[in-house]
Amino acid sequence: MNKIVSKEHFSANVVKLEVEAPLIARSRKPGHFVIVKVGEKGERIPLTIAGADTKKGTITLVIQAVGASSRKICELNVGDYITDLVGPLGQATHIEKVGTVVCAGGGVGVAPLLPIVEGFHKAGNRVIVVLAARTKDLIILEEQMRANSDEVIIMTDDGSYGKKGLVTEGVEDVIKREKVDLCVTIGPAIMMKFVAALTKKYEIPTVASLNTIMVDGTGMCGACRITVGGKTRFVCVDGPEFDAHQVDFDELLMRLSAYK
């Protein structure tokens, strides 16, 4: 049982929760995720950790209400408990000084991108963040991103904020104007597929953090399996980050629709 100590609405469907989890707060690193279950008959779903406060013993989760289980989590309030929370899971992001890093985030993928942006910035990289959303209201964590990077580029589908266009256009503008050594992308699978296609064209190494269907999250069930470079890999224990140019995104998209 993990208590919710603060709640903030980023938009109608996106909430940020701070949850008591002192052991996870202490051991988690950028890139790690947790499995969350709400209620006795709840579903176990993976959520990437968006931050932690070791002094308060809390971790931050950002959740978008897309299905029954994520809605249940979004409906929890301060003082409520998450029935089951386990982690940190997966492999941490490999952070080192590489030069210039473009971090491209879409939707709630922006939340787990924040600790990665912080990590690369602290490691002495030039970090350029591209945030994308359908419309202005759905852009999240802009301020925190600005505080931890060299530049933030905002892209909206409807042009209501920043530049009008897709995340890929924002990334390509950067690539055209300066040398980029690494790209990190987190967002909807379809978005990451197009970011990967773009950076492949320019031969820029790219890492994508994948969010698949999982049950246990520890390697036991294999529900999260994907194909990377022709080989089957488990997102929960081998990932969640992979070489985006090797990921079979079409298969990933197909597998994500298993219960739709």
């Binding site: 520890t218 390697g219 036991m220 069930c221 294999g222 529900a223 399996r225 994907i226 194909t227 089957t232 488990f234 224990v237 298969e251 197909m254 597998r255 629709s257 298993a258």
Partner: peptide, 18 residues
């Protein structure tokens, strides 16, 4: 922990599971 698969074509189709 880890379930074995056979490594044959189509094993990652939806509806195939451990």
């Amino acid at each position: 922990g880890l379930p074995n698969f056979m490594g044959i074509p189509g094993e990652n189709l939806v509806g195939v599971m451990s």
